[in-house]
Design a protein around this nucleic acid. Structure first.
Length: 853
RNA sequence: GCCCUCGUGGUGGAAUUGGUAGACACAAAGGACUUAAAAUCCUUGCCCGUAAGGGAGUGCCGGUUCGAGUCCGGCCGAGGGCACCA
């Protein structure tokens, strides 16, 4: 019997064409069907797809197929996050227009996604750099402006003085611009902000309702929002003519009797009194310098500048405490002022020890004595009993907080207060390739929103990157607009929006992707939202997801269709990793330039041995990448899909290996071999009832296992279960024990189960079964519980919890019978050895444990 | 420094509620088929033993339990997040 090998290149093409032409994966417009919205994070069109994309979209594709087979109307769209800096950098380097570069990349990457056979509804494709998309974004911006959720303020930014541009934090490397290498300076710029902080409480609280999100991501968001409850306390300044007060924030008002100084941020309003003080200005400089990089911050010494002022202690009559400016207090958090309680805060203690300030313990740890307890170099931050504290004495920390806040409010010297670490979202970027901010300025600099009728504010295409800086700034005409009312010349905002804004609502746009009048239709969004399953990299755990949660709230708040959480289920996948190689010159080289011999690696060009680095996430800079296109050409789409689903659990990193992909290819061939072997079983071959029922049991067990493992995202286990089943099936076929019609029926279910994973070969094999309906029109099989019942079970016999024998018995026998049987076993008896059975545990149909002494 | 997660064979990993640890796969060794190779199939896998069988065993130490990879406490190691947040 000669069986031809499976030819992926021909078969892949055939089915991709079929799916495309028949719009097999188009979401239905009918809103009566039960829906399922499956979304993977859309890609940035950087050039070509990488393995991370392959993994991400394969995971989503399995879910999308699975839900379709289960009768859902599935929305599985794709788009392009196509604004951003790489396009501009490419433009500068290659003299290509960012638009041309981007569109070309999209074309290439779309073709590559099609080569993998993803079941995407391409009719809903969108691209954020398309004015059909960003016109709605500009309208949302104006809506938020009207709602008071957008404002402009001065803020410090990282400024590259050579490239004349703002840099994001991650583009500042060792204090220098990542491209120019010039030292980055802090510059005050007037920037636009979204008031994300006004949703801080809700963004924090609602995390609890996201039961289908990873705990890790929720925790990261919680920490980022950083809610802390405490109170503000007003301290009176004693020796000043205009009796200014200092408002401080604390989460530990219970330690107020331990206060020994106040510390203020260097840019606190009180510093205005020191504008002409040379010593103070020097001190301020020193603070800014030490604050250069973030990691050194924590290790930097705490330094202070003692003012001439002292504050009155609010509860101890006649007591005054000194006031300092210090580098460890930040203006951006709380009120920019604190009271220092050295005994119970490590930073305060370090500061107090340095400047010789009082250390007054007020919390007594359990098992400590008031007289002997001392604070040395470590502050005590734990629970305990309050002492040295007048009316708070003998209370716990918790009770103390409640009591003192009540007192503070009674005395009108403060109020309880919740503070968040979260800051408002700065959205201005001094960049060309982004969504223009729809704002105009009159000659006095007043901001005037663009009339919604005049949207979109389109990006001009005739721009030049010859001069450094933002091309919109030095465009000859674009930024000048005549005011309709007054006829005067207005000037456009030349900053563009942070690209995170683009990705904060694309999931809404997919619901009504072609709608002209607005960003989305309420009816569409009511039907499709929320996204049932969102899948992407954990690197977006904070910003993208938080911004999307905010934006969804912000644009719908006050409308008829208010929305909160856009993503019901979230799955964060691991990365694709590969070893790194460096040649003898110390340069990174691609894996394909390396060959292996006797466990050592050599460069092909030079035959010299290469240095092998640890396996890391694939990245262009380290060249440890494998191009999906090359692998698809060699092994076909199904083998690649199968590989990225195999072995490693989806949430963990996966190691790319040549053995792995060729193993996957072999498995694809094995499915084909089974499919072909079933076709040529002689008609006279019959199976006996026992063989029939055993394979029937196996397929029902497979249905159960695959269903369970897809539902729980255990795709690697599902893969293992498929291997197990095919091993059995191919054994039957190799031993010539199969009956054609019977096995065809079994195989039919198998193909439906495996179709979401490897749709090309499943479709091709299905066609050979000559069934009228296509595989994509099938229903997900249902397993029969009664078939999963074992006729013979393996009863484990333990002695003192150790396995000593396995008894094959019929299920549901009485304990006495089974117990008698097991004491008749030699393997059990030799351990009993006349000893007394102290106790016996029986777990039905599972085990007997004999406890002997 | 604070917070979180994870430690299972040579490797990736499995074990759904505490109940046969190592499914499945990769790699390795041996064998079958073949003139040979590729492909395919079979066997092996820590320690003692030819075998039957026994022992140890899920990072380390201890606890709970008839029974612990799984639960609890302490330590060690790896990874991730935040970073003077009052």
């Amino acid at each position: 019997m000669q069986i031809e090998k499976f030819n992926p290149s021909a078969v892949d093409k055939k089915w991709q064409k079929f799916w495309d032409q028949n719009k097999v994966f188009k979401a239905s417009d009918s809103k009566n069907l039960k829906k399922y919205y499956c979304l993977e994070m859309f890609p940035y069109p950087s050039g070509k797809i990488h393995m991370g994309h392959v993994r991400n979209y394969t995971l989503g594709d399995v879910i999308a197929h699975y839900k379709r087979l289960n009768g859902y109307n599935v929305l599985h769209p794709m788009g392009w996050d196509s604004f951003g800096m790489p396009a501009e950098n490419a433009a500068i380097q290659n003299k290509l227009h960012p638009k041309d570069w981007t569109l070309k990349n999209i074309e290439v990457m779309k073709a590559q996604l099609k080569l993998l056979g993803f079941s995407i509804d391409w009719d809903r494709e969108l691209s954020t750099c398309d004015s059909d998309y960003y016109t709605h974004q500009q309208k949302f911006f104006l809506d938020l402006y009207e709602k008071g959720l957008v404002y402009k303020k001065e803020s410090l930014v990282n400024w590259d003085p050579v490239d004349n541009t703002v840099l994001a934090n991650e583009q500042v490397i060792d204090g220098k611009g990542w491209r120019s290498g010039a030292p980055v300076v802090q510059k005050k710029l007037s920037q636009w902000f979204f008031k994300i902080t006004s949703f801080a409480e809700d963004l924090d609280q609602s995390l609890n309702g996201l039961t289908e999100w990873p705990e890790k991501v929720k925790l990261m968001q919680k920490n980022w929002i950083g809610k802390s409850e405490g109170c503000e306390i007003i301290f009176k300044i004693k020796n000043t003519k205009d009796t200014k007060n200092i408002n401080i924030f604390t989460t530990r008002p219970d330690t107020i009797f331990g206060a020994s100084f106040l510390a203020l941020a260097v840019d606190h309003p009180l510093s205005e009194n020191y504008l002409n003080d040379q010593k103070y200005q020097k001190f301020k400089e020193a603070c800014y310098q030490s604050a250069n990089t973030e990691e050194t911050l924590a290790k930097t010494d705490k330094i202070g500048f003692k003012t001439d002022y002292v504050a009155e202690h609010p509860f101890i009559k006649g007591k005054t405490i000194p006031i300092f400016f210090s580098n460890f207090v930040l203006m951006g958090y709380g009120t920019g002022a604190i009271f220092g309680c050295p005994a119970h805060d490590q930073r305060d203690l370090e500061f107090a020890n340095k400047y010789g300030l009082e250390v007054i313990p007020v919390i007594l740890p359990p098992n400590e004595n008031e007289k002997t307890f001392k604070i040395q170099n470590e502050a005590y931050i734990g629970e305990g009993k309050i002492y040295n504290s007048d009316f708070l004495n003998n209370l716990s920390v918790h009770e103390g907080k409640k009591t003192i806040i009540k007192k503070i409010e009674q005395n009108k010297i403060g109020t309880s207060k919740v503070t968040f670490r979260l800051r408002d979202w700065g959205i201005s970027r001094q960049r060309y390739w982004g969504c223009p901010i729809p704002i105009l300025y009159d000659d006095t600099g007043n901001a005037i929103p663009v009339d919604k009728k005049d949207l979109p504010v389109k990006l001009p295409e005739d721009i030049s990157f010859e001069k450094p800086g933002n091309p919109l700034d030095h465009h000859p005409s674009w930024k000048f607009v005549k005011c309709k009312k007054t006829g005067t010349t207005l000037i456009r905002e030349t900053d563009t929006l942070d690209t995170f804004v683009d990705s904060s609502w694309y999931f809404l746009r997919f619901c009504s992707s072609k709608l002209k009048e607005s960003g989305y239709a309420d009816s569409d969004v009511k039907y499709w939202m929320p996204v049932d399953q969102y899948i992407g990299g954990v690197e977006h755990a904070i910003l993208h997801l938080l911004y999307s949660r905010f934006f969804t709230r912000a644009i719908t708040t006050g409308t008829k269709n208010e929305m909160k959480e856009p993503f019901k289920g979230l799955f964060t996948q691991g990365m694709v990793c590969h070893k790194t190689f460096k040649n003898s010159e110390g340069k990174w080289i691609f894996p394909e330039e390396v060959f292996e011999k006797d466990g050592k690696f050599f460069e092909e060009k030079t035959n010299q041995e290469v240095t092998v680095g640890p396996s890391e996430s694939m990245s262009k800079s380290k060249k440890n990448v494998v191009d999906p296109q090359t692998v698809i050409n060699l092994y076909g789409a199904d083998a690649v899909r199968w590989f990225v689903l195999s072995d490693s659990p989806p949430e963990r990193d996966i190691q790319w290996s040549d053995e792995g992909i060729s193993g996957s290819y072999k498995f694809i061939q094995k499915i084909w071999l089974i499919s072909e072997m079933i076709q040529v079983i002689p008609a006279n071959l019959k199976m006996n009832d026992g063989d029939k029922s055993s394979i029937e049991k196996l397929i029902h067990k497979l249905i159960k296992d695959i269903t369970y493992n897809i539902d729980h995202f255990h795709f690697n286990v599902a893969v293992a279960k498929f291997y197990e089943f095919t091993n059995h099936l191919s054994k039957i076929l190799h031993e010539n024990k199969g009956e054609q019609e019977y096995l065809k029926n079994i195989f039919k279910d198998f193909l439906i189960l495996i179709y979401p994973f490897v749709p090309h070969i499943a479709s091709e094999s299905w066609e050979k079964l000559k069934i009228k309906e296509k595989i994509n029109q099938q229903k997900w099989p249902v397993f029969k519980q009664e078939l999963l019942k074992e006729e013979i079970i393996n009863l484990v016999i333990q002695i003192n919890g150790k396995k000593r024998a396995v008894l094959e018995v019929e299920p549901n026998q009485s304990e006495e019978v089974l117990f008698k049987k097991c004491t008749e076993l030699d393997s059990v008896n030799k351990f009993l050895d006349g000893k007394k059975i102290h106790n016996k545990i029986y777990v039905k149909n599972k085990l007997i444990n004999l406890v002997i002494k």
